[in-house]
Simulated assay, not measured.
Amino acid sequence: MKRLLLLPLLSLALAACAQKGIEGVQTFDYQGGDHRPGSLVYAENPPAGGAHNTLWQNCGVYDQPLYNEYAVHSLEHGAVWITYRPDLAPEGVAALKALVDGRPYTILSPYEGLPSPVVASAWNAQLAVESPTDERLKAFLDKYEQGPTAPERGAACSGGYSGTR
Rank of each mutant, 00 (worst) to 15 (best):
M1K: 08
R3N: 15
P8E: 00
L9M: 10
L14H: 00
L14N: 00
A16G: 04
C17W: 10
C17E: 11
Q19F: 08
K20E: 09
E23W: 02
V25A: 09
T27V: 00
D29H: 12
Q31S: 09
D34E: 02
G38P: 13
L40T: 07
V41M: 14
V41L: 14
Y42F: 03
G50F: 00
H52Y: 11
Q57T: 05
Q57L: 07
Q57R: 04
N58W: 04
G60P: 04
V61R: 07
E69Q: 07
Y70S: 07
V72I: 03
H73K: 12
E76H: 02
H77S: 05
H77D: 04
H77E: 02
I82V: 11
Y84A: 14
P86A: 12
L88P: 01
E91W: 12
G92Q: 12
V93F: 01
A95R: 03
A95Y: 02
A95T: 03
A98D: 15
G102R: 09
I107Q: 12
Y111R: 15
E112C: 06
G113H: 11
G113N: 13
G113M: 07
V118W: 03
A125Y: 04
Q126D: 01
V129H: 00
S131W: 00
K138H: 10
A139M: 03
F140P: 11
F140E: 06
D142V: 10
D142C: 08
K143P: 15
Y144L: 08
Y144C: 12
E145W: 05
E145R: 09
E145Y: 03
P151I: 00
G154D: 06
A156E: 14
A156F: 13
C157S: 09
Y161K: 12
